[in-house]
Amino acid sequence: MNGTFIVNKVACNFSFNPTARLLTVLRDNGFTEVKQGCQEGLCGACLVIIDQQLVNSCQVLAASCLQKQITTVKGIGTLHHPHIIQEAFVEAGAVQCGFCTPGMVLATYNLLNQIPQPSEEQIKQFLDGNLCRCTGYVKIINAVKIAARRLNQGNHGKN
């Protein structure tokens, strides 16, 4: 089947199988920043934001997202115009292999939209859908705190 998806604010027409997962459709169409880690909704590497909801794109059927706004990690910041959160991950040493990072960054983005100044406990609870095997999460939690502090200092320029 065919359908239009608004990916990172650009309308895209994809043809896809009616039972295809959003993850597969995105990756097949070049959005490889959405990573595939487990296909069971439990690692968070494939997170995207659909209409402000953080979801595992492997647990979403593409056919249920027609005309929806889909944001990948490239939609919140790019190499040349990184988001404060992405910069915070770099600075905090929160990126090791980086396979979980796009999902972690999106989860952080979604968290800070909802709770601008989260406590450590709130950060830990919110990131419960993101696995990371490299960092032991310590630096990731630091990165979230750094990003929250910067965003709250009114440094929203790049958002």
Partner: peptide, 23 residues
């Protein structure tokens, strides 16, 4: 010195490629 990992911005912005990202 705590030099940021040279690939970390590329990884955070989804630019860096892993094996499965090649087509």
């Amino acid at each position: 010195k705590n030099i940021p990992k040279i690939d970390s911005l590329g990884l955070s912005t989804g630019e860096e490629k892993f094996t499965d990202d090649f087509c």
